[in-house]
Design a protein around this nucleic acid. Structure first.
Lengths: 226, 226
DNA sequence: GACAACATACCGACTGGTTGGTATGTAACC
DNA sequence: GGTTACATACCAACCAGTCGGTATGTTGTC
């Protein structure tokens, strides 16, 4: 029922049909991501998604039980894409956890490229309109946002231990705060039809982390706040 | 055509019919605010709004040319409500502009009460899904968000002149950053189905402003960053 | 102060296009 | 020959917007 992948054949190469199926499924998920990020979940028609994927409704309902199920799968797909992107990002190789935290923010700023539907967050977009009417979508968005925050939280926690062990804030709330700044930046970017506001917000966020983790140049230790 | 008010009779009291009309219009706008904040713009049916207002479609299309026009009017109504609320808020009476900025954040935190549709932002909710498909809605949301930010920007600018004249950030971007934190806080609150995350985000925001404007207690002047 | 002429506010049945979902067919592959 | 992976045709429900009608003012006129 909730199985989203065709079982892999016991031995030898994956089947051509299964490959084609998986490829079509991915096309549909990519299309769903784009369409939903462009017009929201409710306004996104399944035919829009099919057209974008170059497939038909037959294919859509072959792979997904419903529009809602597709949205949940798209959320997972979005999160998997993001995981791959951030795993491969260069900032993760910094040895200093504070550098990783600040590098994360720089990286988030660097990927604000292209049109709005290409860099805004599918999860934040969907949860805004679906949080009450579509519990499964809300749960999926919550899960993947929180999982992404957890990655960041780990670095923040390490940095805090090193540079601000006494301060009151928790790494968890700081990580979620970062996600809020990002989500809010996307909202403003949509309102103003451009990524600049979001980038400015990330500048403030970076300054905040520099403040609560101590300034990057280790000169005046007494400078830290809280 | 676009006249939304009956012409006021030359002299004497306003007419009963006009009063009733205005009252119904307001009921519809209040209902639209609630319904759209609950399920988003696309999923909000005009019959939902009518039912919530205790009126029928006849009344709806008597007062608004279209669903989209109603949404734009609801945005204006939302902004007017907000203006009244913040005009009356006690924090505005602080003489120190820094106190007003910090007081604004406290106030925003204090009004995170009740169910999600009661304290989340209509403008942010609508612009997420309508920014590309409904330009008039996007423009309205942009306008009212920016106008609200302008109010805050004035206090931030004053505080900056007093407490951080040298620092690099602009009052405008700091004001927009605050709005991003709020909007993002609402997104996370919806994902997590509770206001607590939003409140935590506002704690971080307040700490940020305390940092960039200098700590409230005027003891160590060298403590300010940037 | 009564009556005609008109305006405003609202109801609710109707319509026509839209849309999520289904049923059926078919081609390829194993 | 059975299963997978689609396409095509179709349906029933939904929903924004229309329209004829009614009730309740309001204004000018005599």
């Amino acid at each position: 029922m909730t199985l989203t992948r065709a079982p892999i054949s016991k031995r030898g190469k994956a089947k051509a049909a299964a490959d084609a199926g998986a490829a079509s499924r991915e096309k549909l998920l990519d299309a769903a991501m784009l369409v939903i990020r462009s017009k929201g979940y409710s306004a996104a028609r399944v035919e829009d998604i099919c057209a974008e994927a170059g497939l038909t409704k037959g294919a859509f309902f072959h792979h997904f039980a419903s529009k809602e199920a597709c949205a949940v799968a798209a959320a997972a797909h979005f999160a998997a894409n993001a995981d791959a992107l951030f795993d491969a990002a260069p900032y993760t190789r910094h040895t200093d956890p504070r550098d990783r935290v600040l590098g994360y923010i720089d990286f988030r700023k660097a990927i604000l490229q292209g049109e709005l539907p290409q860099f805004t967050c599918l999860l934040g977009t969907m949860v805004q309109e679906a949080y009450d009417s579509h519990p499964t979508i809300r749960a999926a968005c919550d899960r993947y946002i929180s999982e992404h925050a957890k990655r960041l939280e780990a670095d923040i926690a390490e940095a805090k231990t090193l540079y601000a062990p006494e301060s009151e804030w928790t790494p968890q709330s700081a990580a979620l705060f970062s996600q809020a700044v990002l989500q809010g930046g996307f909202v403003l970017a949509k309102a103003k039809h451009g990524a600049k506001v979001a980038a400015d917000c990330l500048d403030h966020l970076k300054r905040y982390f520099e403040a609560i983790l101590g300034a990057p140049a280790p000169r005046d230790e007494g400078k830290r706040i809280q």
